[in-house]
């Protein structure tokens, strides 16, 4: 039975399990392939956790030391010297809560921003969906966050017991995983956008630590949003991280508030950033080996 040439072609295409082509469509993201490699994702998460503190005496203690040290630094600089308000909460508790929440977000960016360059050795030898690597980074960062959360809970319990005005709003605890997810998605998106942009021109990667630091000061992490003058409020409102940090602090300390409209804005922001990030990452991963 005669067939038109086009028909023959399409039936042929179905016979192949893989077609390697120079370029893919913008939204041909192959997320199903990522799912097929979920075992690798879990093993990489495990590797990240197991290897970082192997052969250290203090082990998981290294997860909690940085926020403790940072808390004391901010306590001295902002609490004792600059005397910035902490909304009536003990400054130690205030800084610790803000820094732990921010720390997770910063971790997500910092760990994923060098995906292509740091893994060039492996990427050059074996194909697997590259997205697995940044995904595993942000997931393994959750473990660190979890350990820090225990530290925060203990500190909080101590301060509440000793009469601090902090009043945890535990009825909103269900929101915590969602806040974490938002920070993860935004951090991951920024990270993979940066790593996609820096495979060929590395200039931007020098800016990352500085930019993350700057972003922290533009977010109410070490000061409460109540001290922001109305004139500059818009900066705080367009920053998708502000409402996340605020909600986090509301749940644990009972100060600031949960702004549902701003959280909705952050959610939309996260989704848009993720789509842009995935598209850019996808465009980069196919031939970055030629320039990295």
């Amino acid at each position: 039975m005669p067939k038109s040439a086009k028909q023959v072609n399409t039936t042929n295409d179905k016979n192949w399990s893989l077609i390697i082509r120079p370029s893919r469509g913008w939204f041909d993201l192959r997320l199903k392939e990522v799912w097929n490699y979920r075992d690798l994702l879990l093993l990489l998460v495990r590797r990240d956790i197991v290897t970082v503190y192997k052969q250290t005496l203090l082990g998981a203690f290294w997860f909690v030391l940085p926020p403790i040290l940072n808390t004391f630094i901010y306590f001295i600089l902002f609490g004792l010297i600059a005397k910035v308000s902490t909304g009536g909460i003990n400054p130690i508790l205030f800084y610790l809560s803000g820094l732990i929440a921010w720390g997770y977000f910063a971790d997500c960016i910092n760990r994923t921003a060098t995906t292509f360059r740091a893994n060039a050795g492996v990427f050059g030898k074996v194909y697997f969906p590259r997205l697995i690597v940044p995904l595993s980074s942000v997931i393994s960062a959750i473990i660190k966050f979890g350990v820090q959360l225990i530290l925060l809970s203990i500190t909080l319990a101590y301060f509440v017991w000793s009469g601090d005005p902090a009043s945890p709003q535990l009825q909103y605890l269900w929101l915590l995983p969602f806040l974490l997810l938002l920070m993860m998605v935004i951090g991951l998106s920024f990270g993979i956008i940066i790593s996609s942009l820096t495979t060929k021109y590395r200039d931007l990667s020098n800016m990352v630590p500085f930019a993350v630091q700057l972003l922290m000061y533009a977010t109410p992490v070490i000061y409460p949003s109540s001290i922001i003058p109305d004139k500059y409020r818009w900066i705080f409102e367009i920053n998708p991280l502000s409402s996340i940090i605020e909600a986090f602090r509301y749940i644990f300390l009972g100060i600031d508030k949960i702004s549902w409209p701003l959280l909705a804005y952050s959610t939309v922001f996260a989704i848009v950033a993720l789509v842009i990030g995935l598209v850019m990452f996808n465009r980069t991963e196919k031939d970055f080996m030629d320039t990295v």
């Binding site: 893989l18 390697i20 120079p22 370029s23 590797r47 492996v122 194909y127």
Partner: peptide, 30 residues
């Protein structure tokens, strides 16, 4: 598939494994 062609296409039937080196991703501490 560690890099993509500039033009043309390759069609493949079946599961592919490529061994460009052994021990890719081995971590010394594990």
């Amino acid at each position: 598939r560690t890099t993509s062609p500039s033009s043309g296409e390759i069609k493949i039937k079946g599961k592919v494994a490529s061994l460009l080196e052994v021990g890719t991703g081995f971590h010394p501490d594990l």
